[in-house]
């Protein structure tokens, strides 16, 4: 599904190298988790994959089902099936949440040569999905993320994911800011989407999310590289002992 090879990334504006050779393969139908100390480059990786400006790829590649992601515009990556649930979802004053979602769904359908969703059908689907995430109708009418609480923003990200049905979902600290119940809701939302043709890359600091969304593979990222890869037990080790041992071992 997703194949990242020797990815090197620096900031465009300054000579700061952030990703120093990331190698990562996510197979179809699997859930991978990435953990790692603050500032190790996890969000940068997700931004680079989704096409945010400001980064320069100096080496390496990233492909989604064989297609070179790094050469595509952000909207093309989305239409190809990539989705990033942001660590910090963006507020867009003046653009209604509902309008935004519908525009996005139909733009992707159009890009893929599919028929657009009718207003009626869209409304039906979005209402049902919003309900399972406990997002009320009033929130859907408000401008995108404006005045949403931290947890509401994260749930809104998952709603977008559920509507867009991407095949490669990257979740960047979706658990931060969520209360215990909301985390369960979000995890249920994610688990409901798990399928043979869909993969997840879950960036998190905490085992508790992984209790709900069970990963197949866990990676540890440090200083711009994946330094260790293992099974779910690796996350438990981090939970108990922190990163010190792991980092000492690889250095």
């Amino acid at each position: 599904m997703l194949e990242i090879k020797n990815l090197h990334v620096k900031l465009e504006e300054e000579d700061k190298v952030i990703l120093k050779g990331v190698n990562l393969t996510v197979e179809a139908g699997t859930v991978h988790a990435i953990m790692g100390p603050n500032g190790s480059g996890k969000s940068t990786l997700s931004y680079v994959l989704s096409g945010r400006d400001g980064y320069e790829v100096t080496d390496g590649s990233a492909t989604l089902d064989g297609a070179e992601l790094l050469e595509m515009e952000p909207e093309e990556r989305a239409a190809a099936g990539l989705f990033l649930a942001f660590q910090y979802p963006v507020e867009i004053p003046g653009v209604g949440n509902m309008t935004f979602l519908r525009t996005a769904v139909n733009a992707q359908r159009k890009a893929r040569g599919e028929e657009e969703m009718s207003a009626g059908e869209f409304l039906k689907v979005v209402r049902a999905k919003a309900k399972t995430l406990k997002i009320d109708a009033e929130m859907m009418k408000r401008p995108v993320n404006v005045g949403f609480s931290g947890g509401e923003k994260k749930r809104n990200e998952i709603l977008q994911m559920a509507m867009l049905e991407p095949k490669m979902c990257i979740l960047d600290e979706t658990d931060s800011g969520l209360d215990v119940d909301a985390m369960k809701l979000v995890a249920e939302g994610v688990n409901a989407l798990r399928s043979a043709g869909r993969s997840f890359l879950v960036i998190t600091h905490y085992q508790r999310l992984l209790d709900h969304i069970k990963p197949d593979v866990v990676h540890i990222m440090a200083d711009g590289r994946i330094v260790k890869t293992g099974g779910p037990e690796l996350a438990l080790e981090v939970e108990h002992n922190g990163y010190a041992n792991i980092l000492a071992e690889v250095l």
Binding site: D53, P74, V95, A104, V105, A107, Q108, A111
Partner: peptide, 29 residues
Amino acid sequence: DETALYYLRSRGVPLRQAQSLLVQAFLAE
């Protein structure tokens, strides 16, 4: 707002359409 533009595009909204949405949002008041 470049960040808003990127956010919209990351959801699959093409550049021009995303710009148009943001301009319309700007004029909405």
